[in-house]
Computed example of a mutant assay.
Amino acid sequence: MKIAAIDLGTNTFHLIIAEQAESEMKIIYKTNKPIKLGEDITKENKIIPTAFERGINCLKEFKATLDQYGVTKIRAVATSGVRSASNGKDFIDTVKEETGILIDIIDGEEEANLIYEGVKYSGAIQGKSLIMDIGGGSTEFIFCDKKGFYWKKSFDIGAARLMQKFFKSDPISLEDQEQIKIHLKENLAELIEFGKDFGATTLIGSAGAFETYAEVIDPAINIHEIPNSLIDIDAYHQLSKKLIGSSHQERSEIPNLIPLRVDMIVMASMITDYVLAELNLKTIILSTYDLKMGVLQKLY
């Protein structure tokens, strides 16, 4: 039997198809499209018409691929970009009408649950850890170990949302950076309070920006073939300093930094820096498995 998961993120739509055997699940197709559904979403809290159209056209392509592979079981989930938009339901209804794909709008708690399941499947969780999934609209945090999770929460501090609110200079000014740090401190107080008591030493980055960190630091890495990988923390700090201090043009010339992330990686780096410093985390591990793998796991 063939199963599939679709993850409608604020920036990127993902499709993953697996073949379900008795004892294992084999990935047979995987793709993502930079849809930018959350483009300008902070202005009127709406999916703008051009983004709406991009999303519909992408899902038409996904439907053709699902039919081509003969997928019999599918779950499509939408996260912050759709759930926070005033016309999110209109988008869901249009997708159903034009493609037949039924989309579940999941809340932040279920999103965190699915991320945990995906990361756990990657084998990245060894001891007390903090999983962080930096999306476009929201960022999820999960304190966990191999036995389970102990605290989880989704915050509306995604990279696209922060960029639209604070990124007003190029390179980003010290003043804008300070405003972001104040915003993070105000919004993440609960996370930091729990984290200091929990005592995690490892930050597990769930795909996305962390894949970019890994690929820029080590161009030889193939993130499509590994479930997890250690990211050298000193190399990360050097990269973060470079990303935050560089202009859009300078970042666009960095190998393995995809166009979608050229600016948002600055916001992702600032979130990562803040959490590493506040919780005194010593190790970074990339999990290439994330929410969409968690969705697949639940279907399996």
Rank of each mutant, 00 (worst) to 15 (best):
I142C: 01
I258W: 03
Y150Q: 03
F166H: 04
K292F: 11
R251C: 10
K282Y: 12
P219E: 02
D232N: 10
S23R: 02
Q249V: 12
F167V: 07
K147Q: 11
N228F: 13
L188S: 09
G123F: 11
A159K: 09
Y29W: 11
L286A: 06
Y69V: 14
M267C: 10
E97N: 14
E140M: 10
G118L: 01
A18K: 04
I142G: 02
Q126S: 14
K181S: 13
S247I: 15
L59K: 05
D234H: 09
G123P: 02
K152F: 05
I106N: 10
D93V: 15
Y274R: 00
L281K: 01
S169D: 05
E140S: 07
H14M: 03
G136P: 03
G205D: 00
L102C: 14
G108N: 09
L114D: 01
E61H: 06
K73I: 12
S252I: 15
L239C: 04
T99E: 11
G294R: 00
F210K: 02
S169G: 09
L59T: 08
T12G: 11
Y289R: 01
S206F: 04
I271N: 05
E215P: 01
I254D: 03
K146S: 13
G81V: 02
D234E: 10
I16L: 02
Y150C: 05
S169V: 06
A235L: 10
L174T: 07
S206P: 01
R161C: 10
G123T: 00
A64D: 13
E225W: 01
W151D: 07
G108Q: 11
K63Q: 02
R54H: 13
N228T: 04
S122D: 02
I244Y: 04
E193C: 13
Y29M: 09
I103M: 02
A160I: 02
L203F: 10
G208R: 10
G100R: 12
G108E: 01
L8N: 00
G100S: 09
T42Q: 13
P34E: 14
I35F: 05
L291E: 03
N11W: 06
E53Q: 13
K241H: 05
G88P: 09
S247D: 14
D145V: 03
I182K: 00
I142T: 08
Y300E: 12
V82S: 00
T31M: 15
A277V: 14
N32Y: 04
G9L: 03
H183A: 15
L162Y: 04
G70K: 07
E98A: 15
T212G: 06
I92H: 08
G55A: 06
K292Q: 14
E140G: 02
L37C: 00
I180Q: 08
F62R: 07
L191E: 04
N228A: 09
D7Q: 05
Y150H: 08
E178Y: 11
E111F: 06
Q177A: 14
D263L: 00
E215R: 05
I223R: 08
H224K: 15
A5V: 12
A189P: 10
D176S: 15
